[in-house]
Amino acid sequence: MYRNDTVLPFFGILFGVALWYMAYLDGVHIQNLLGHTPEELSVGQLGLITFGIVFFLYGAIGYISAFLEGSELRPGRHEAEGGVAPVILTIVLTLILVALSGVFVNAIAYGLTEGPVKSSFLGQLAAGIFLIMALLLVIYKKHFVDDEVLAEDEHSEVPW
């Protein structure tokens, strides 16, 4: 039986956080050796952060799957629950999404006419926009999309 365990995702996120912390400790060590904080990340830090992100994403995907489909897929039709709360949440998130995209355009326009805007600010806006879009998709799938799980013979005709 197919399982959406939360065991692997848990360790994925744990390893991700641990790698991230190692990158931080690496930075502290470099700072101690140099006597000051360098402006750029070291190669080691970049590698640790990259693998940290990979593990973290792996864990996040696992948790989202478990949330959307349950820990175990059971054959049959699964109708979406719907409900008022997800509708309200969707409306609120949509308004925030539209507001953020408005601010983003405002910042771009300001950058074009007045002067440069901090790239970290634009980055945070974009991250917020993408996170809310992902959240909307999760809510839509969870509450408004029907599912059907088909059981297949153990010795099915699929060669693999």
Binding site: L95, V98, A99, L100, S101, G102, V103, V105, N106, A107, A109, Y110, E114, G115, P116, V117, K118, F121
Partner: peptide, 20 residues
Amino acid sequence: VWFYFAFSPSVTDVVKGQAV
């Protein structure tokens, strides 16, 4: 909502605070 956040002077002030 979009137009307010894209063109309102008060939001532009917030953006200005983030200018380099």
